[in-house]
């Protein structure tokens, strides 16, 4: 069966939205983090692509572009033993605490 990311030629497409959005800081970070881990040889494009393409269909279609990047990067870093899900959960809680209410 065809997987979700393999969407070339799907006939349910509408008009192309050509609006450009200014990147948020976290998107710049997501982009840079992906690139720099590649440059350092810690992961390669094919690995993060595989993780992205393995995402379940609902997540793939509902997350934004850089959310997909971050989700797939986390999968790869967990697989490589560089981080654990729990470490990331703890760090998110710590950051939320430090940031307070936006």
């Amino acid at each position: 069966m065809k997987r979700t990311h393999d969407m070339g030629g799907d006939t349910d497409a509408g008009a192309i939205d050509r609006t450009e959005h200014a990147m948020d800081d976290w998107e710049v970070l997501a982009d840079a983090l992906n690139q720099v881990l590649g440059v350092k040889g810690i992961k390669c494009t094919d690995e993060t692509r595989r993780a992205r393409e393995d995402m379940d269909s609902e997540a793939y279609l509902s997350l934004s572009y850089y959310e997909r990047w971050i989700a797939s990067l986390e999968t790869i870093l967990v697989e490589k033993g560089l981080v654990t899900r729990e470490e990331v959960d703890r760090k998110v809680a710590e950051l939320e605490n430090r940031w307070g209410e936006p």
């Binding site: 970070l29 983090l33 971050i70």
Partner: peptide, 10 residues
């Protein structure tokens, strides 16, 4: 996921 980006960075 944006929060997790910062968390992974740190």
């Amino acid at each position: 996921w944006a929060k997790r980006a910062y968390a992974m960075r740190d």
